[in-house]
């Protein structure tokens, strides 16, 4: 993690409040930096538009099938804990909620989806741990390296008790909205 620095060197870890203060003061770029265990982590830039296109297809599928039951946010800053604030590719938030213009609470989230190209290892490890620890009930990683979907549910500790891997030819559905079908052949088109 610290290429140059000696292993005993302790990095200063920020709180979400400091992180928000930095964003407000214009010290951080508006997108592309997350707070993970108190560290400022840069999200990997995508070299081509496959990531963007996959997000667009997913967004259309999820919006078409929502019928007022959830809000699907592409890009939402979500506080997971005192030192974690992330910006997932998709957040499905249960409706009805109170004022959605305020901060969305992790407790209202039904599903988080990350579309992973170069960030695959990061999304399958660090991100999965942070989401499980924050009790996000379900987490999908749309793996553009192998055209697979990694589906995790039943969070416990910093892991998920249940997982499965789905491939093209299968459809997957959020556990809270089982009639919403996401056809992986279309996602990986």
């Amino acid at each position: 993690m610290l290429e140059g620095l000696e292993p005993e060197v302790q990095l200063y870890r920020y709180t979400v409040e400091q992180f928000l203060g930095m964003a407000e003061a214009g010290i951080l770029p508006e997108r592309g930096v997350e707070l993970i265990e108190g560290l400022l982590v840069e999200m990997s830039p995508e070299v081509n538009n496959r990531h963007g296109e996959t997000r667009r297809i997913l967004a259309e599928m999820l919006l078409d099938q929502r019928h007022g039951r959830y809000a699907a946010y592409p890009s939402l800053s979500l506080r997971l804990g005192p030192r974690d604030m992330v910006d997932p590719d998709f957040v499905l938030v249960r409706l009805p909620q109170g004022d959605l213009s305020g901060e969305v609470s992790a407790a209202d989230v039904a599903l988080i989806i990350e579309v992973a190209g170069s960030s695959l290892d990061y999304d399958l490890r660090e991100k999965r741990e942070r989401y499980a620890a924050a009790r996000i009930p379900e987490y999908w990683v749309i793996d553009l390296q192998s055209d697979l979907a990694h589906v995790f549910w039943d969070p416990r500790g910093d892991g998920y008790d249940a997982c499965r891997v789905a491939a093209i030819g299968e459809t997957i559905a959020p556990r809270e909205f089982p009639d919403v079908s996401v056809d992986l052949a279309q996602v990986f088109a």
Binding site: L2, I27, I36, D121
Partner: peptide
Amino acid sequence: MALDLHGLSVERYEQMAEAGLL
């Protein structure tokens, strides 16, 4: 995997200190 940590310039660092964020 290695995390890509977001680095700060000395100007940003001083700006944060002045804003009471450090």
